[in-house]
Design a protein around this nucleic acid. Structure first.
Length: 329
DNA sequence: GAAGCAATAT
DNA sequence: TATATTGCTT
């Protein structure tokens, strides 16, 4: 596929030059293998006993593209919705990239925290005999009603951002797991998840007390607004302003390097000083990206998106999506 | 029951 | 290394 990306070649050069890394790193339209093409020759597949791929028709490709489009659009609108400072709007962390990779039964993700704890106790206490086998550690056998172990939560930038917002909003006194969980309003998020994250977060803020710099493991929380506000509040003792209300959380963008995400040289995901995935206007190189997507068409765009997370970022941050959707109809 | 914390497990 | 779990105290 395309040339190996050289990071040093791809840094944003500033000024009016809107060439961005991913333009350099992306293959040309002609370099892209159509999805309709079989990637493994039949001889090779036979030699390695690989069951032959079902050949994809254009219908398959188009369907897959549409699925990707619609899921991305859903995802995009969720991100946009979460931008509106609405703590109470539902937010599905399941739709993150990590979740797409480790996606499991969604019904398992919406158990309430206390239920999960009860369930865990049942699993470890009430059915000890069944659990004595390591094979049963994570998954129940088909005959029982037990559900698979809940997949580990990944604190994505979006999720962490919401956590930060809520904690900053609640202040140091009110920021307790249950309240945070409720205000975050994230489907599937448990009190335990929040408590664990909060515990770690507090350790970080403690370490960030004066005279103590962050340790090497603190990158997750570095420069978060809540870290600032927690520090300030712990110094001043409260987060209330003079009229007795909670101080408005300073929703400063947190640094995207908190959670490693490949940005391929696009500064902060395309916007200096903006969080990953949130746009403050067309990103640099917008028109070129847009034209390129138009040239590619949905099928090929789909292929790229399967392989390039960075393009997701560009699409979202640049709000290219809506325009592209309209024009491609 | 919930929170907070430390230790430990995964 | 990040997150979950556990056990204990408050």
């Amino acid at each position: 596929m395309g040339e190996e990306v050289n990071l040093t070649d791809c840094e944003y050069s500033g000024g009016n030059d809107d060439r961005l890394l991913w333009e350099v790193g992306l293959p040309d339209v002609d370099d892209i293998t159509p999805l309709t093409l079989q990637l493994i020759p039949s001889e090779l597949a036979a030699a390695f006993r690989i069951s032959p791929e079902l050949s994809k028709t254009m219908t398959d490709v188009n369907r897959a593209s549409q699925n990707t489009f619609s899921s991305l659009q859903r995802w995009h609108s969720q991100d946009m919705a979460s931008m509106n400072n609405s703590y109470l709007k539902p937010f599905s962390y399941e739709r993150t990239r990590e979740e797409a990779v480790t996606e499991r039964d969604e019904t398992d993700l919406i158990r309430e925290g206390s239920d999960q704890r009860k369930l865990r106790r049942v699993e470890s206490g009430g059915t000890e005999e069944a659990d004595s086998s390591p094979c049963n550690e994570n998954f129940a056998d088909d005959s029982s009603a037990k559900t698979p172990k809940r997949p580990r939560l990944v604190w994505t930038p979006q999720l962490h951002k919401r956590f930060i917002e809520v904690v900053a909003h609640l202040g140091i006194k009110g920021a307790v797991p249950k309240t945070i969980m409720q205000l975050m309003n994230v489907e599937g998020l448990t009190r335990e998840n929040v408590a664990s994250h909060l515990q770690k977060y507090r350790l970080y803020t403690k370490r960030m007390q004066p005279n103590e710099g962050p340790s090497s493991s603190d990158h997750l929380f570095t420069s978060t607004p809540a870290a600032e506000s927690m520090r300030e509040s712990s110094e001043s003792g409260h987060l209330c302003n003079t009229n007795g209300h909670m101080a408005t959380p300073t929703l400063m963008p947190y640094q995207p390097q908190m959670v490693p995400m490949p940005m391929m040289g696009i500064p902060n995901g395309g916007h200096v000083g903006m969080p990953v995935g949130y746009g403050g206007g067309p990103p640099l190189g917008f028109h070129h990206h847009y034209n390129m997507l138009q040239k590619l068409g949905p099928a090929r765009c789909h292929l790229i998106m399967e392989e390039s997370w960075q393009i997701h970022e560009v699409l979202f941050s640049g709000k290219i999506w809506d325009k592209f959707e309209l024009d491609s109809r």
